[in-house]
Design a protein around this nucleic acid. Structure first.
Lengths: 342, 342
DNA sequence: CAGACGAATGACAGCGCTGTCGCTTTTGTC
DNA sequence: GACAAAAGCGACAGCGCTGTCATTCGTCTG
């Protein structure tokens, strides 16, 4: 319980408290000698400004809130999502003297909206980062915007208005396709996901763009349908492997389907990655648990959250481009260079 | 940005600001009529006390910090741990007007200790909850204690001093053993874990106590060694199933070994749970992903964290018993009543 | 070297709340 | 009905900081 106040520092440095305040806040118009004297006194006394006093005087909270979905029971995937967002936001906050408030909100709870409003009215964060899937819900968005608090939405989906940060699924899919091509693969198949998810469309178009960019032709026989389930991945693989000219690489629109492909390959005695490269999308926890561990696309959650924190704290808008963070390709064991024909 | 202050409320209710303060803080010596008038004014104006002003005046922070290990990359298990602790602590905080500060600390980082000190000096939480495995590290504990902040450790292991909250592994193992016995099983095997983990000893003794409590004799042939790995579970199961009188239920000291048992059973054509019941310990995420989903023991992380929050905020010590939270048995598909002999 | 102007510094009043203390009213007692 | 004790309430001074504005200092002009 450091009881050192600005007055103690001022006395020791033989200046007024206002000058100490100037030094602490990096304000101009302090002579170098004075500044050093004050800094020394701060060091000597181990002075820490009292955040409450500062907040009270400035009428600011130095707080950022992160609101995310809180399923009753946390399954592995969603909790990795949350924790990584927290990390990223936290590092943006900490380097700027801000603190992070976390607010899990279960949107199935009728009082969730009320609770969000309460939290904002109580803690008065300077901005709110809203994680998916909440970032896509009009009433949640409206509640926050009505409070007058700055809002950054994460991956809010197509046609988003307001400020947001997201990754470009199409670009990521293109990158993965190009990566497979760079391994020497010429026949790269794509397993489409559930038609309802708009992201799935983007991934397909990214695949096509990737082929184009790598100078490969699109073979319609190499695009098969799936519904995001493991089983649909198994079927898709069976279909592809039965082709006269089967692919040497398969890119699935999500990890579950990729896992299904792995299963079928093993059943067919096709060895991965020697005879077939397989790539997924999402980097769910399963991806590194299965064998062979899955090469996949991962959203850079920490970077996304960091960017969102920056936007709030530094009060920047950023161009659209600044706010689209490229996804990472995570290379694991399920992909390899094309084996030489013998 | 509600700009309503205590003065506005006082004016509207025609009382002094001090009386409003009394009502807000539930202090005595306010006539019922007055209290109601003030409460109505608060409602009308939608008044929210300014936490910074309150903190400044009371010299309290109304903050609790949760410090936990932050591996560079989050694997599923540890992040479920963290998120559940956050939940539990958050609910303790929210019902009492407290806020939660989260502080991931990577103990492999040489600056971790310094960062913890900084955080405490800066934010001045009223108490710190220290999660495992940090709760077991003397230098981390010392750093926090030296700061004069109240510290509650989670599962600090044997011989803990100071205040802590934990579960009793022995009791939990006993409960699971009794549960298996209650299903009619008479020959219940136990797969011991890695000898180094002290918890594993407790689990073994709990198993023995459970047998005793259920009136079953201990058969040394039914206790086999493992080393906490999946492979060791496979071996242990092979050994047990080869017995002249094989067990009808196996209780493994952790989930990984239980998963191994499941594998061997499947290889031996022994159907689980029809012919063999299998139980694990820990409830790792794998437990509900495998088939059949594993009956296991789960630490009630939310309850543990909630209790820790209570201790800090309500400033209670609690007897040893209050601070040992019983684990939950999670019944899934891998256990069933003993099949009638035919 | 006087005058002017900007840089450097300090005095002081809040920010919105609670703690202390004193005053007034009510309640209880015989 | 008089008096003490307790309950109810308000005035006011902080809590530790920053914003405003006044003041002093230093430097540069002609």
């Amino acid at each position: 319980m450091s009881k050192i106040t600005i007055t103690d520092v001022a006395r020791r440095a033989n200046v007024s408290i206002k000058t100490v305040s100037r030094v602490v806040n990096g304000e101009p118009n302090v002579r170098d000698g004075t500044r050093e004297r004050v800094q020394q006194a701060i060091l000597d006394l181990d002075y820490r400004p009292n955040p409450s006093a500062r907040s009270l005087a400035t009428q600011r909270s130095y707080l950022v809130a992160l609101i995310y979905d809180d399923p009753d029971a946390y399954e592995a995937p969603s909790c990795g999502y949350v924790v990584n967002l927290q990390q990223g936001l936290l590092s943006a906050c900490n380097t700027r003297g801000f603190d992070l408030l976390i607010h899990p909100a279960n949107y199935r709870d009728p009082k969730a909206l009320e609770n969000i409003g309460k939290m904002i009215a109580h803690a008065r964060p300077e901005g709110v980062v809203l994680a998916a899937p909440l970032s896509n819900m009009p009433d949640v968005v409206a509640t926050i915007e009505d409070s007058g608090t700055r809002l950054i939405r994460l991956s809010p989906g197509p046609c988003a208005t307001g400020q947001f940060v997201e990754t470009d699924d199409a670009e990521a899919a293109q990158a993965m396709t190009s990566y497979l091509a760079s391994l020497g693969h010429r026949r790269i198949a794509f397993v489409r996901g559930h038609a309802k998810h708009s992201a799935v469309q983007l991934r397909l178009s990214g695949y096509k763009a990737g082929l184009r960019a790598s100078g490969l032709d699109l073979d319609p026989a190499l695009i098969v349908d799936g519904d995001n389930s493991i089983a649909s991945g198994e079927n898709a693989a069976a279909q592809l492997l039965a082709l006269e000219q089967p692919p040497t690489a398969v890119f699935a629109a999500n990890d579950d389907m990729a896992a299904g492909i792995l299963r079928t390959a093993s059943r067919f005695g096709v060895s991965v990655p020697d005879q077939l490269s397989v790539a997924g999308f999402d980097d769910i926890s399963l991806a590194q648990q299965i064998y062979p561990a899955l090469t996949t696309v991962r959203q850079p959650l920490r970077a996304i959250a960091y960017r969102a924190g920056e936007m709030i704290i530094d009060d920047v808008q950023g161009t659209h481009e600044d706010n689209v963070i490229p996804a990472e390709i995570v290379v694991r064991e399920s992909t390899a260079p094309l084996a030489r024909k013998h």
